[in-house]
Nucleic acid binder design. Structure first.
Length: 362
DNA sequence: GGCGGAATTA
DNA sequence: TAATTCCGCC
């Protein structure tokens, strides 16, 4: 760990990064956000390289393809990776083996037919880094990807948002199932279709939830910069949905009329009709679903939006601070507003549940 | 080049 | 756990 290599390489830069039109939030470039390990992970390193203009001759985003990148100089990338990891014997063969391990994890996949070309699975990365963010969604209709804080552009391509939404829905479902002990006969659309990998959403989540990475103890509490980083991507921050936010779309978020939907993107709003939605919510397929959460008669949504208060009120004591479960530590959470003796039934019922996140390590 | 199994490492 | 290393196969 203490080999000089670690400090070499890619300096961090503040702010958001717009890379070929795709902006990654700050956390994506922070080594600490690399889940599952204290050491930087390869996918993270790749992002770092992609972020840096000086490395564009060795690796760069593929224009026109969200999340797709090309390793222009495999040997050089391998060398850089080897240097970072203090593995002078690193080569592309080995590096690519590591990349291939990401296939199963659904972090990455290969673009067939294109040499040295891979593609990130954004939603997986997001879920991995923010497994909890949508837990609060029901009470915070603004917790939407498409609802960037003021002055912040939407960061994710629409297609990605749609995919992400699916992931979120699945996560909701998984959590609800776990915490209610109910066996839903059917999960959300994608849940059943997945083979062993379905894994992914649930189990992968668990694999990264263990060590608290989201709370204040995990970089998001302070300093402000970190918070703003979080705000960059996570919609789970104070209500900041500007009335005109639909006009904030970045270059990859061309305005859509309310009737438009993405080709190939399931119209979740039709699957799960809700009440009237905020105009902005119509921006992306599926968003109305979340936008409508807790907003009225869209009760069919409640199943998916089930919010176990216990999760927030009674985090694993071992995990320490409650904040560990609350990436927004520092902001008044609804949990805190609960007066003593005012515990709701949900949390009471969960008291003996030994709050086990769907994915908590044993 | 790309894939994935297997053993190993930190 | 996330690689690293090696290797046979296509």
């Amino acid at each position: 760990m203490h080999c000089g290599c670690l400090t070499e390489g890619i300096p961090a830069t503040p702010g958001n990064y717009w890379i070929s039109g795709v902006a990654f939030p700050d956390w994506a470039y922070k080594a600490e956000s690399s889940p599952g390990s204290r050491q930087i992970q390869l996918w993270h390193f790749i992002l770092e390289l992609l972020q840096k203009e000086e490395f564009h001759h060795v690796i760069a985003w593929q224009q026109g393809e969200y999340g797709e990148f090309v390793i222009k100089d495999p040997d050089e990338v391998a060398r850089l990776w080897g240097r970072r990891k203090c593995k002078p014997q690193m080569n592309y063969d080995k590096l690519s083996r590591a990349l291939r391990y990401y296939y199963n994890k659904r972090i990455l996949h290969k673009t067939k037919g294109k040499r040295f070309t891979y593609k990130f699975n954004f939603s997986k990365l997001i879920i991995v880094n923010y497994p909890l963010w949508e837990v609060r969604a029901p009470s915070s209709p603004h917790l939407l990807l498409g609802a960037p804080p003021l002055g912040r552009p939407a960061l994710v391509p629409m297609s990605v948002q749609s995919e992400l939404l699916h992931n979120m829905l699945f996560t909701h479902w998984a959590m609800a199932e776990q915490l209610t002990g109910q066996r839903m006969t059917q999960g959300p659309p994608e849940a059943t279709g997945e083979k062993k990998g379905s894994s992914s959403s649930i189990h992968r989540l668990g694999s990264v939830l263990g060590p608290c990475r989201l709370g204040p103890c995990c970089h998001f509490g302070t300093p402000q910069g970190e918070l703003s980083s979080f705000a960059t991507f996570s919609p789970a921050l104070p209500p900041l949905l500007p009335s005109n936010w639909t006009g904030l779309s970045g270059p990859f978020l061309p305005p859509l009329s309310s009737e438009q939907s993405l080709p190939g993107a399931p119209k979740l709003d039709t699957l799960l009709p809700g009440p009237s939605f905020s105009p902005g919510a119509w921006h992306f397929p599926g968003l109305p679903l979340l936008a409508g959460l807790g907003q009225g008669p869209g009760e069919r949504l409640q199943l998916l939006s089930f919010k176990p208060e216990g999760l927030e009120v009674k985090p694993d004591p071992i995990a320490g601070a409650k904040g560990c479960l609350d990436p927004r530590e520092g902001y008044p959470s609804e949990t805190h507003r609960l007066k003593p003796g005012e515990e709701n039934s949900e949390s009471s019922n969960l008291e003996n549940l030994k709050v086990v996140w769907p994915l908590d390590p044993p």
